[in-house]
């Protein structure tokens, strides 16, 4: 697995329209970004279409990366998540889409996690532990599986507005905890 420094360097070369760097970047990060699309969209063909769109965006937006001050993988994953979630929200509302897809196999941290990533993960888990169980599950499910407010409200059997109130307060508490 490539280091954040390598990915950052490749992105700054892609910003210079360096196609060789784009190819190398694709080799390093396409599997992760495809995994993100699959997990959110749960449809292989749509995920392939989405991944192509994501890399078109990466090619055109790479010049914004340097100015963003972001870490490279979160920046790339945000592009993939945003695009996949845009597709999800553009679909007709359908709670029946919930269900585990066979290729989403791994809920455990993947081996490439660095020590820094593991410690950040422990921190967010500790903060989630301070929330009520179902609120923590809602935050996690929304981020990882793309659950909408409608789906979450249905799952937790609460009105939509109550769900929104819960989640907003949970997020603010999470932020306060992470910034302690």
């Amino acid at each position: 697995m490539s280091t954040p420094e390598e990915i950052a360097r490749l992105l700054s070369r892609v910003a210079l329209r360096d196609r060789a760097a784009f190819d190398v970047l694709y080799g390093h990060v396409s599997a992760k970004l495809f995994g993100v699309c699959l997990r959110l969209l749960r449809d292989r063909q749509e995920s392939e279409d989405a991944l192509q769109e994501v890399f078109v965006k990466v090619w055109h937006k790479a010049d914004r990366y340097a100015a963003s001050g972001a870490s490279p993988m979160p920046w790339l994953i945000a592009i993939a998540r945003n695009h996949a979630i845009d597709r999800l929200r553009a679909r007709r509302p359908a709670g029946s889409e919930i269900g585990e897809a066979e290729w989403v196999v791994d809920d455990a941290p993947t081996p490439e996690s660095s020590a820094v990533q593991r410690s950040e993960r422990r921190r967010i888990d500790d903060c989630l532990d301070r929330l009520q169980d179902e609120r923590a599950a809602a935050v996690r499910g929304a981020y990882l599986d793309g659950d909408s407010y409608e789906i979450l409200a249905e799952r937790f059997a609460v009105p939509l507005n109550t769900m929104r109130t819960w989640l907003r307060r949970s997020l603010i508490k999470l932020r306060e905890c992470l910034e302690e």
Binding site: S30, S71, E120, R121, I124
Partner: peptide, 16 residues
């Protein structure tokens, strides 16, 4: 995006 990114390690890579 930065705060929530630690969740990303739960998503398994899949080769396209």
């Amino acid at each position: 995006e930065r705060r929530l990114s630690p969740f990303d390690d739960e998503t398994a890579p899949v080769a396209p």
